[in-house]
Write a protein that binds this DNA or RNA. Sequence first.
DNA 1: AAATAACGCAACCGCGGTCTC
DNA 2: AGAGACCGCGGTTGCGTTATT
Length: 243
Amino acid sequence: MGRSPCCEKAHTNKGAWTKEEDQRLISYIKAHGEGCWRSLPKAAGLLRCGKSCRLRWINYLRPDLKRGNFTEEEDELIIKLHSLLGNKWSLIAGRLPGRTDNEIKNYWNTHIKRKLLNRGLDPQTHRPIGESSNSNLTNSSSHTRTQEIALFSSESKRSNVLDSVEEANSSGTSEVVEQQQYLDLNLDLSMSLPFQSHPASAKAMEPKMGFSGVCLCYHLGFKRSEACRCQPIQNACALTVDL
DNA sequence: AAATAACGCAACCGCGGTCTC
DNA sequence: AGAGACCGCGGTTGCGTTATT
């Protein structure tokens, strides 16, 4: 099936954003909230592709962005999460409040890769350089990691991960210790909404949600009907954010 | 001081997943 | 059921800045 372009390319600006464009985008989103990126540029009076607007907002203009240098703690957390999740930058970014997937991806490629190489570790496998040439070990490692990524990022539940580890445990592989270390990592998301500071948009959401909390389970890969129990019970979900 | 190489980051592109009709 | 529309992600590119010669 052919897909039509997301916007009229002939009449859109490309390249770096001007201050005026930024201001227009910020003003529009502050007034109307995020969403419907396709129609946003026209409504905001921007000669930009909707995707471009989304990217600019998410990676640069969002008010809750931290910016500035990464701390040593953030470095180590990124390394840990990458060893578990691989190049799933959006999932990793979900664990670092105020950081974007693009920022982390860039930071990984420019700093952390080098850091790991200096430690004698392969940035992809997180194993000592040279050891990765052992194909059996590598295959088994990437296999279990792939399984975990699938479990976290698809619609599976955390209990499935525990099951898989128990299974591995019973088979007595050396991966078990490593897997258990991963499980020590708290992957529960805690996020703040970008519009907490803007009562108008928060209020606009209330009728749709039915209550003044927003369930973020979906961002962990859970569908509301699965792991999340907050739907029938107001504010029962641990991942609900009070507005 | 000028040339050029290396680096860092913002932005773009293409694809896959999900939703809607 | 499936076609089309939309969104979000990961990989890549391009350009401005900084370091080096």
